[in-house]
């Protein structure tokens, strides 16, 4: 019934490192239309278990569409058994993606935790066409969570890494990396995505230093189309759906507890 529901062919599905996988599928129209920060909603099961589709930020959209995922639940584990040539039931592109940085911006700092790094690569692909200084502060749990950094470095992004166990980069959460960067309230713009406590930390840091930014948020999601109103989060403007009003919101707009 929807313009945006399609079946696509899986091109590849590979394990990149201990925890992250990349699924690539052939969706030329989607690849052309998608904006950084938008997502696809994938039906991982043939039957009813798990029932909901699973939302994934677009990782890259060039010739093919790529998503990055970590098989940790029933949906993502089913995704991991998809093979080249399999068909994939996809809704997308969905949601409101990232706003572009304001005119005066010279430096873009992406701050991501874990799988939250996914929307930053497609964002990089767009932003590198302009002359921004691109920086990524990335916090992963272990060595097994840092693979995608290579692709950012290859795109000219200056990357700083922290791991919870100190196995790569600085030891600790991504906030230990904040002093690696010279933030400027006038010329720095932040993009962030990751667990809510992390986004909350970035929000507090940005507010303290008067830096603007965008956050990509998540919530349990059913329809992905703004119909069920199940994925609402609290913002300064009232409840907003992650799937339709977001996932990207102004950093200062989202209310965390």
């Amino acid at each position: 019934m929807d313009k945006i529901q399609n079946t696509y062919r899986v091109i590849s599905n590979e394990r990149l490192c201990a925890h992250f996988w990349r699924l690539t599928f052939d969706a030329p129209q989607l690849a052309q239309e998608v904006q950084p920060g938008q997502f696809v909603h994938i039906r991982t099961a043939d039957g009813l278990e798990p029932l909901f589709r699973r939302p994934f930020s677009i990782y890259r959209a060039q010739r093919y569409v790529e998503i990055l995922y970590e098989p940790i639940g029933p949906g993502t584990r089913l995704l991991a058994v998809k093979q080249k040539g399999d068909s994939l039931d996809v809704l997308g592109p969905l949601g409101t993606g990232f706003k572009m940085p304001p005119e005066r911006t010279k430096q873009v700092v992406m701050i991501a935790g874990g799988i939250g790094v996914a929307p930053m690569l497609i964002l990089t692909d767009i932003l590198k066409k302009k002359k921004y200084e691109l920086i990524l502060l990335y916090g992963g749990r272990t060595r097994g969570h840092v693979y995608p950094m290579k692709e950012f470095k290859d795109s000219g992004v200056k990357v700083y890494i922290s791991t919870d166990d100190g196995s790569v980069g600085s030891k600790g959460r991504v906030s230990v990396l904040f002093d690696k960067v010279h933030f400027n309230p006038l010329t720095t713009f932040i993009y962030t995505c990751g667990p809510n406590p992390m986004i909350k930390g970035v929000q507090e840091f940005a507010a303290k230093h008067n830096i603007g930014g965008q956050a990509s948020c998540e919530e349990i999601m059913a329809c992905g189309l703004g119909a069920c109103l199940g994925c609402s989060i609290e913002t300064k403007h009232g409840y907003r759906t992650v799937c339709y009003d977001g996932p990207a919101f102004d950093l200062e707009e989202v209310i965390f507890y």
């Binding site: 009813l48 278990e49 798990p50 029932l51 909901f52 919530e219 349990i220 059913a222 069920c228 109103l229 199940g230 994925c231 609402s232 989060i233 609290e234 009232g238 409840y239």
Partner: peptide, 22 residues
């Protein structure tokens, strides 16, 4: 305005919702 999050939860072949008639 509807209920506070979390508003939905996935269950075996089903879901629980408490949207609050937003």
């Amino acid at each position: 305005v509807g209920n506070p999050p979390v508003r939905i939860w996935e269950t075996p072949s089903g879901m629980i919702n408490a949207i609050g008639i937003e």
